[in-house]
Design a protein around this nucleic acid. Structure first.
Length: 821
RNA sequence: GCGAGGGUGGCGAAAUUGGCAGACGCGCCAGACUUAGGAUCUGGUGGUUUUACCGUGCGGGUUCGAGUCCCGCCCUUCGCACCA
């Protein structure tokens, strides 16, 4: 098609010029205020970018560009979170080294991002698989190790049989691996953990200090799952020997403890063996085997019936000395609290269901009004007043909880306890393509951290990437790599063969952009002081509890180590919504409905694509692609090109109402666009620019404004507003109207509040809430005059005639209203 | 079940926070230019029985005035899901 606006030629013309100018280079000027605008660390997949990814990258680019024009020193970098399984699996299948795949994919991402002219400073590009990068990931591991926050422990962990590696809790979704969606299982292995639980409280408390979506804050809070309660010790009695064993339980409702009628242990609980009556042994063992098998598959099924088996022994309630039967049941989780619960059927739904099923007594001890409610048909789980609770009867739940915890403490039978759902972060991965854990195992010295000056521990060049089926990393088979000497005693020793979870790399990458090439440290403290923390962080909501929690944890560790002077890495966070295919389904390679930036840039140009991505819908909400929609944006871009290339302005003097009107629209646009971009309201920013375009097209047609010097000013302002959104169009027109220099290096326009004031306004007149007329009146008209004008209107009079005016309301510049009877 | 969003024309969506509902765009309709139109331009476009009335998921309420505030429902998306 014949183009008035040849976007291809324009893109090819400006791209090399801008590169040459170094338009997107981060400045070293420390006198200006800084703005650190960061995108989530992407994994460069072999599929490349789809237009959906641009919902992340175009908005941050627009903001970066506007901030630069507003005089900020902007850091807007990009890098690759390139460790991970796809490249490794590809290597297993095709024999291509992951480093090769990764480099190729990263180059493709970079090409696509520059295709739509994202203004990243490519001089600061980083790659987490680069030894110069993972050297520092290992260095941070050692920092955590030094501070007692990295430890090895054995336990049943989530194992993905497909990926053949262990996963962290956060990486298991609905019993499936977050990457390959295969069913996970539990496996006993010796694994590395980071002690994130030490930071649980700070991770909750500091959420108050950041500007993040509430949803994400809530998700993190729920994930950490803080609950305040009490630990109380019941005594379990061996049914044969009579020997007593302490069974600590955790409860948030110690006020219900007089209502305990039985107790349940998790099947894995170590005391089960000691408390099982010989007669029940077979049944108990059968139940344990059964629940092991069940694993996660049944936990997901809708059937949630509580099951359990009697141990044949009893426990003694510390408060009243009552003996209650002990059960095991798989509704009690071994990993939470103490793995044992006191069961109060009257006041807990699960216990109620269990008691019903096994015909156990229900003892009411909390009531809404201090009086028994008789037989309960369901558990009463609210707070209330205690009954049948000895010396605590008559207290409210709140009072009782405090007094009963004190009682436990003074009798050495328990204490106040805080529990978290959060578990420590399991970072061992039995795979090749990750940062090796810098630890050496020595027969004499045990676990020895590799000294800093020996970092990085580089991955060996290998040909065979398959992990062992027994939970061994492929690295374990490379003898010449595994066998080393102990850094402490010099005797033969073996390297740790697990690599680190990829989330370790992304927990600190935002620091590396400050000094991406520095050899002596992860970053320079002085530079860090200037650039950090990140001012604006944008990416998908799917990382709510993984990356975002880990990065916050590492930052707090660094703060404690004196490396950074702040507690939170990302001051402001925003999540873009997903982009669906035109039919509302997900874009996926298998469905063949993926739309790439490449095809759209070819068809409509980078400017129309950028603007359309922004215009599609509200930033956070998911939107569907529309082929018709981008054609509309293509029209808009052309319309602007026509308007300005044909009307540069002139020497005439603009005056009169038409000039004032256009001036007002112009300044309103400056204000709206500036605020809208700051507020992530890109769709309305573009709508305002369209309105300005419409007003200018109209003015060019119907007035002589286009030959005035004011028009020239308007055009220049317009182009500056357009520059962050459609950089090529703005630059080309900037040159066409005869300017030298780049529009991208101009000062962002500032609106004149006085130019916004309208001298006359159209006021709606209502009678009894119904619109009856609209009057053009001076904006500053007083109440009496407004009333007079309204009463003079024929249309209004018709509804006032013969009625009594009970009330008159005048809201200046808004409306006039009569209430009549 | 718990937690957080959301419900506005044929469609994507706006609405200075209580003040003309539907900005802007898509689509559609009509016209212009055309050998042609899935190109471009111009105008129109919430509905209806059109002096007017009805319209923001449903039912109530507050108010001169409600998409916006209050009470009670329905539907929907996304998290978490036996956490004691």
């Amino acid at each position: 098609m014949a183009e008035r606006y040849d976007f291809n030629a324009i893109q090819q013309k400006w791209q090399p010029k801008w590169r040459e100018m170094g338009l997107y280079k981060t400045s070293e000027d420390r006198s200006r205020p800084k703005f650190y605008c960061l995108d989530f660390f992407p994994y460069p997949s072999g599929n490349g970018l789809s237009v959906g990814h641009l919902r992340n990258y175009v908005p941050t680019d627009v903001i970066s560009r506007m901030k630069r024009m507003q005089g900020f020193n902007v850091l807007h970098p990009m890098g690759w979170d390139a460790f991970g399984l796809p490249a490794e699996n590809f290597a297993i299948k095709m024999g291509v080294h992951p480093a090769e795949t990764t480099a190729k994919n990263a180059a493709n991402y970079r090409r696509q991002l520059t295709l739509v002219e994202c203004s990243h400073d490519w001089d600061r590009e980083i790659n987490s698989t680069d030894p110069d990068y993972y050297k520092w990931t290992q260095w941070f591991f050692l920092l955590l190790h030094k501070r007692g926050l990295a430890y090895k422990a054995t336990g049943a962990q989530w194992w993905c049989p497909d990926c053949r590696t262990i996963l962290a809790n956060e990486q298991v979704e609905q019993g499936r691996c977050w990457r390959c969606e295969s069913q996970v299982e539990k496996k006993d292995l010796n694994q590395w953990f980071f002690k994130i639980t030490d930071y649980a409280d700070r991770l909750i408390d500091d959420l108050k200090t950041v500007d993040w979506p509430d949803r994400i804050k809530k998700m993190q809070e729920n994930w950490i799952g803080k609950s305040i309660g009490a630990e109380a010790i019941f005594k379990g009695i061996n049914p044969v020997s009579g020997q007593q064993h302490d069974i600590p339980i955790f409860t948030t409702r110690v006020d219900t403890i007089f209502g305990v009628t039985f107790m349940t242990l998790a099947p894995e609980h170590p005391l089960v063996e000691k408390l099982t009556h010989p007669d029940q042994k077979a049944a108990v063992e059968g139940y344990i085997t059964e629940s092991r098998k069940k694993s996660e598959i049944d936990r997901l099924s809708t059937e949630k019936e509580k099951t359990g088996v009697k141990l044949g022994s009893y426990a003694i309630n510390p408060f009243n000395g009552e003996k209650v039967p002990i059960f095991i049941g798989d509704y009690v989780l071994y990993g939470y609290g103490t793995g044992a619960v006191m069961a109060v059927p009257a006041h807990d739904e699960r216990d109620f269901a269990f008691a019903r099923k096994y015909n156990l007594p229900v003892k009411e001890v909390i009531t809404p009004d201090g009086k028994s409610q008789g037989e309960l048909s369901s558990a009463y789980t609210e707070y209330g007043t205690l009954i049948e609770s000895g010396q605590f009867s008559g207290l409210t739940s709140e009072q009782a909880i405090e007094k009963m915890i004190n009682w436990l403490a003074s009798n050495k039978l328990g204490f106040k306890r805080v529990n978290y759902k959060l578990r420590d972060w399991l970072i061992s991965r039995q795979r090749y393509w990750g940062a090796p854990i810098p630890i050496v195992h020595c027969d004499c010295c045990g676990e020895v951290p590799v000294p800093e000056n020996q970092l990085p521990i580089k991955l060996p060049e290998i040909k065979e990437f398959k992990p062992g089926s027994d939970g061994k990393s492929p690295l374990a088979f490379i003898d010449e790599w595994v066998n080393t000497t102990c850094p402490k005693c010099g005797k033969p020793a073996k390297r740790e063969t697990d690599t680190m979870d990829g989330f370790a790399c992304s927990s600190w990458y935002f620091l590396r952009f400050v000094n991406p090439k520095l050899a002596s440290a992860p970053f320079n403290a002085e530079d860090g002081k200037y650039w950090l923390p990140v001012d604006l962080y944008v990416g998908g909501a799917e990382h709510a509890v993984m990356h975002l929690l880990y990065a916050r944890f590492w930052t707090k560790v660094m703060q404690d180590a004196g490396l950074v002077p702040f507690a939170e890495p990302f001051m402001k966070l925003r999540n873009q919504g997903m982009m669906l295919a035109a039919d509302g389904s997900k874009m996926s390679k298998s469905k063949g409905n993926v739309i790439t930036p490449d095809e759209m840039v070819e068809k409509y140009g980078a400017d129309a694509l950028r603007a359309f991505i922004l215009f599609l819908g509200t930033f956070e909400i998911e939107v569907s692609w529309s082929d018709d929609g981008i054609r509309g944006m293509h029209r808009f871009v052309n319309r602007v090109y026509d308007l300005i290339s044909e009307n540069h302005g002139g020497t005439g003097i603009a005056s009169g109402k038409e000039a004032d009107d256009l001036k007002r629209v112009l300044h309103k646009t400056i204000k709206a666009v500036s605020n809208d971009i700051d507020n992530f309201s890109f769709n309305t920013a573009i709508a305002r620019l369209m309105e300005l375009t419409n007003a200018m097209v109209e003015a060019a047609k119907k007035t002589s404004l286009a030959s005035t010097s004011f028009w020239r000013e308007a055009v220049e302002t317009f182009l500056k507003l357009l520059a962050p959104i459609t950089p090529f169009l703005a630059e080309e027109l900037w040159q066409i109207i005869g300017n030298s220099g780049s529009v991208h290096q101009q000062k962002w326009p500032v609106w004149d509040e006085s130019a916004l004031v309208e001298s006359t306004v159209t006021l709606p007149v209502q009678v009894n809430g119904k619109l009856r007329d609209q009057l053009d009146l001076p904006a500053d008209i007083d109440e009496a005059a407004a009333r007079h004008a309204a009463e003079a209107s024929e249309k209004v009079q018709k509804h006032l005639e013969g009625k009594q005016i009970v009330k008159f309301i005048y809201v200046p510049k808004r409306m006039i209203s009569f209430v009549v009877k």
